[in-house]
């Protein structure tokens, strides 16, 4: 329920946050070195890559969790070797 939506927003957020941080870093680099606009552009691009990296990690994490859940959901043989008292 709402899980797919939540996951989607999470993934989009990873990408956007990467770009934002990259661009911000580039901006600070520009204002420090006066290299405008190359720092910003480079930061934006690097941020995009970092966002994708984060996105992939999030997806892999999600997948690992799902496969774990699948393993947990497998039918299990109840151990009925409970010894009777006599």
């Amino acid at each position: 329920m709402g899980n797919a939506f939540a996951q989607g927003t999470r993934l989009a957020l990873e990408l956007v946050a990467g770009i934002l941080v990259g661009a911000a870093l580039g901006y600070f680099l520009d204002s420090w070195l006066g290299s405008s606009p190359f720092g910003m552009i480079g930061g934006f691009l690097l941020g995009m890559v970092a966002g994708f990296v984060n996105l992939m990690r999030a997806v892999n994490q999600e997948r690992a969790k799902v496969s774990q859940a699948e393993v947990a959901a497998l039918p299990r043989v109840e151990d009925d070797d409970e010894e009777s008292l006599f």
């Binding site: 957020l13 990873e14 946050a17 990467g18 934002l20 941080v21 690097l46 970092a50 990296v53 984060n54």
Partner: peptide, 14 residues
């Protein structure tokens, strides 16, 4: 390294 740093810095934001 910059990518990993950006990735790390974006954690508090996400």
């Amino acid at each position: 390294i910059p990518i990993e740093i950006i990735s790390f810095l974006s954690r508090p934001i996400t």
